[in-house]
Write a protein that binds this DNA or RNA. Sequence first.
DNA 1: ACCTTAATTAACAATCATTTTTGTTTATTA
DNA 2: TAATAAACAAAAATGATTGTTAATTAAGGT
Lengths: 138, 138
Amino acid sequence: METIEKLTKKLRSHGMKITPQRLMIFKVLENNTSHPSAENVYKKVKRIYPSVSFTTIYKTLETLRKLGEVKEFTIDDDRKHYDPNTSIHHHVICSTCKRILDVFEDFSPHVKLPDSLEKDYAVSGFQIFFHGICKECN
Amino acid sequence: METIEKLTKKLRSHGMKITPQRLMIFKVLENNTSHPSAENVYKKVKRIYPSVSFTTIYKTLETLRKLGEVKEFTIDDDRKHYDPNTSIHHHVICSTCKRILDVFEDFSPHVKLPDSLEKDYAVSGFQIFFHGICKECN
DNA sequence: ACCTTAATTAACAATCATTTTTGTTTATTA
DNA sequence: TAATAAACAAAAATGATTGTTAATTAAGGT
């Protein structure tokens, strides 16, 4: 995701409007490496903007996806997750704590994969997801 | 000038807005063959829209000119006149009553020109103006 | 040249028109 | 049952327009 400044320019250039709701959602996402679901975003935004609606979260995330500012993916359950880092990389979900971690190169140093790696070749939007066990849970 | 309906569409397609002031000015101009000055338009609009400002008249006439909806010309004094008929034609000003009349062909049947025609070859924006005497004044 | 006067334009804050966005409610999907 | 989308009226965002005031331009008169 671009900086919020550039993002607002992008909105303008597309005839879209800059609203406090959107700015809050941008702030929650920027530099966010936790791969939040819509609900995660909703709860965080709600803290500082209590009247925000869930529908607005959905719509804004869809807007960001269309603008190419976030990647959308499904990995653990039936909910969508959002990643403001749009560079090509893969994800590993920890079988124990269910945290989702980024794998940028072969295997990220932050992630410890078990020897008997259970590769799950679910392909979704050119992204491959792995199941593993993270450092903290090992 | 186009019909008001088409004109509003043209405004829209240019990202311009339809305001009551503009609609009044359009109505005053449509099918108007009196070649009004800005002041003429102002006075007519003011009757039904008393709070309208002179500046708005000027700006709207300039807008219409830019959109190619009126022809602007000067003929008698130092004031500009506006003609919603944008087809190519000439104008005759009556030396006596100062009315401006259209000359579409060689000489319009509506205009009686004196034998000793004093042609005034003032060229302004591809229009040629003549001085003559109209039927009523002859 | 200078002064008046009238026509037109410029600057700019306040208002308006219009489209987008929001949020409620209701549907759909899995 | 939970997650997401659709529909639509109400609200907000925003750029265009308006109107006030002040500046400019141009012509004529003294």
